[in-house]
Design a protein around this nucleic acid. Structure first.
Lengths: 240, 240
DNA sequence: CGCTTCATTGACCCAAATCAATCTACGTGG
DNA sequence: CCACGTAGATTGATTTGGGTCAATGAAGCG
């Protein structure tokens, strides 16, 4: 299966052949975009739903004083706001962190998809609820945890999310983020992110290869920061 | 109109008489509960959707080390997670901050309501998207703003949300929260919240009457903290 | 080879935390 | 009616995690 959305939704529900075909149909020809371009900007009115097929993106908000907060990461298989048409205008931007392949899905196609395939509708709901749970978890991170635990939690979460869409077969995680981006995510300065990662490195938890951070020792990282992945709701509700 | 949910949804869409009747029907006899009790706890599986009719509640998460983060406030008219049945278990708790009146709505009643009344279904969707926008805004607050601005933003938001459900006719806002609760919300210690509020008091922005904080000078508070309420999406999308 | 983008390091600073008392207003039982 | 207990608000002294500022590497690239 090379449709990361289908793969992600499958981790929640059993999709039929028809469901899978419907999910493939909405994608069409992938559109390629370069890193650092914005998919949609704060204040714009979205006309399409964006599905990320390859690469990484993020939601972010820039304040008047120039400070920036990354609000969420989008990885392959993530669909931004299937029901965003209801609102008037975006209250944040979505930008690409890497080169990416995208599918732009029209409002009508989304409506058709959910009307035809109740399982998909339900699975998209689930996905939306998980996105919200992740947001709540980030809020708890920023509010209550120190710098080390914040960064460690981020790595643990990305590990689990990438594994869910089949992008992690090995036992290492490669993080394609600059230390500045990690800082904008966890509300730390580049300098401090660097010091945290230094510490992780001297403790043998991560290493740097070609400017990319690699996480080796996930079990110990999890234990050190008290990570509990239940908020990702990776298991489906038993009776469904 | 004494149904705060109907009032809230009306601010987004025009509800018919039938819609209003349907919304009244799901409420039934309000249930009274005392402050400080939990409506649902972390790890439990919700069986009913909770509608808050009177009083204040909050979502919160307690960490292993005992620290607590308030994740959201629920005020009259707020419905928690209309689609929470999809998930396996709660990843946070919901507790009452004041004495309250509630309606517990069954899963079937929610499904019936949304199946019969497409306008209500859409308005509930809108409400869910606004909740998520508020959460994103809080994340930006915790990550990028200093103590004064965080507390000021909270007051401004509560002002707008209460006005939306008809609980604010005068030009003052009474905040029924302890300084400790404000601290747990904005990730500050009680001591520091107190100092921030002292400052607001000496600058004539708020006052304390009978242990309740009262906000007088909203315009200046808004200006001082750079508050922009667009994230609450109080205006409906024009063409709907 | 010179840019440019990231990563790294050191010296110093500050907003907010911590610790530790008070103070105040209620509410309650006697 | 009052002494007492308790939750919450205040205040002061001190500490600290992380920020700020300012260079210095180091790798990739046109």
């Amino acid at each position: 299966m090379d449709n990361p959305l289908a793969l992600k939704l499958s981790s929640f529900t059993d999709l039929s052949g028809g469901d899978l075909a419907a999910l493939d149909a909405v994608i069409g020809t992938p559109i390629l975009r370069d890193a650092h371009s914005d998919l949609i900007q704060d204040g714009e009115r979205p006309e399409k739903v964006i599905l990320l097929l390859r690469g990484w993106a993020c939601r972010y908000k820039v304040l008047e004083d120039g400070s920036k907060q990354i609000i969420a990461y989008l990885v392959p298989g993530d669909l931004c706001d299937p029901h965003v048409f209801i609102l008037d205008a975006m209250d944040h931007s979505i930008g690409l962190l890497t080169d990416a392949a995208l599918a732009f899905i029209s409002r009508d196609a989304i409506i058709h998809l959910t009307d035809c395939c109740p399982k998909i509708a339900r699975a998209l709901w689930w996905s939306t609820l998980v996105d919200e749970a992740v947001l709540r978890h980030w809020l708890v991170n920023l509010g209550q945890r120190d710098a080390f635990d914040r960064v460690a939690h981020l790595f643990c979460e990305l590990w689990d999310r990438l594994r869910q869409v089949g992008l992690k077969e090995d036992d290492e995680l490669e993080v394609p983020l600059t230390q500045e981006q990690i800082g904008d995510t966890m509300a730390l300065t580049t300098v401090h992110v660097n010091r945290v990662i230094q510490r992780m490195r001297t403790e043998g938890l991560v290493s740097i290869k070609r400017k990319k951070i690699r996480v080796h020792d996930l079990p110990r990282l999890r234990e050190l920061c008290g990570y509990d992945p239940s908020y990702l709701h990776l298991r489906r509700r038993s009776q469904l």
